[in-house]
Computed example of a mutant assay.
Amino acid sequence: MKGKAVISPLLTYLFSAGRADAVTVFPFIFVRTVKMTQDKVLMNHERIHLQQALELFVLPFYILYALEFLIHLLHDRNFNNAYRNISFEREAYARETDLHYLKTRKRWSFIKYYAR
Rank of each mutant, 00 (worst) to 15 (best):
25 V>M: 12
38 Q>R: 01
105 R>W: 04
111 I>N: 00
45 H>R: 10
24 T>W: 05
62 Y>H: 07
40 K>I: 09
62 Y>I: 04
91 E>H: 08
116 R>E: 13
92 A>V: 02
22 A>Y: 02
4 K>W: 08
41 V>A: 10
15 F>M: 10
78 N>R: 09
44 N>F: 04
3 G>V: 10
36 M>S: 03
20 A>S: 13
89 E>P: 04
8 S>D: 10
78 N>V: 01
80 N>S: 13
14 L>P: 00
85 N>H: 15
96 E>G: 00
74 L>T: 06
40 K>Y: 01
36 M>N: 03
67 L>S: 13
115 A>H: 11
36 M>R: 03
70 L>F: 14
16 S>F: 09
40 K>D: 12
9 P>S: 13
51 Q>G: 02
39 D>I: 03
22 A>M: 05
20 A>G: 08
23 V>H: 06
16 S>Y: 10
56 L>P: 09
76 D>L: 12
23 V>R: 04
1 M>Y: 05
44 N>G: 02
41 V>F: 02
68 E>N: 15
20 A>E: 08
84 R>F: 08
26 F>C: 07
94 A>Q: 12
15 F>S: 10
20 A>F: 04
80 N>Q: 15
35 K>I: 04
95 R>L: 02
52 Q>M: 12
27 P>W: 03
8 S>G: 13
40 K>G: 08
46 E>D: 02
4 K>L: 15
110 F>H: 06
85 N>P: 05
7 I>Q: 13
64 L>Y: 12
38 Q>M: 00
45 H>E: 11
60 P>F: 07
35 K>H: 00
6 V>L: 14
69 F>C: 06
37 T>P: 00
94 A>S: 15
3 G>K: 13
46 E>W: 07
106 K>L: 13
58 V>F: 09
86 I>S: 03
4 K>Y: 12
69 F>K: 07
68 E>R: 08
66 A>H: 05
74 L>I: 13
97 T>L: 07
40 K>T: 13
89 E>T: 01
84 R>D: 14
40 K>A: 13
45 H>V: 06
98 D>E: 08
97 T>A: 12
68 E>I: 09
58 V>R: 05
32 R>Q: 01
36 M>G: 02
1 M>W: 04
27 P>Q: 05
59 L>P: 06
92 A>P: 00
95 R>A: 01
4 K>Q: 11
50 L>K: 02
78 N>M: 03
53 A>E: 08
34 V>A: 12
11 L>V: 02
115 A>G: 07
25 V>G: 05
75 H>C: 14
10 L>T: 11
66 A>S: 15
5 A>D: 06
105 R>N: 02
87 S>M: 14
2 K>A: 14
84 R>C: 08
116 R>D: 08
33 T>Y: 10
30 F>P: 01
32 R>N: 01
92 A>I: 00
35 K>W: 04
34 V>I: 11
24 T>M: 15
65 Y>F: 15
110 F>G: 06
66 A>C: 13
76 D>E: 14
86 I>D: 02
114 Y>Q: 09
102 L>P: 06
103 K>C: 03
21 D>A: 12
88 F>E: 05
34 V>S: 12
98 D>S: 07
109 S>E: 11
56 L>A: 08
94 A>C: 09
116 R>Q: 05
42 L>I: 00
50 L>W: 04
77 R>D: 08
18 G>E: 01
109 S>A: 14
96 E>P: 00
11 L>F: 01
2 K>P: 11
71 I>T: 09
108 W>E: 03
59 L>S: 09
90 R>D: 01
73 L>T: 07
18 G>W: 02
87 S>T: 07
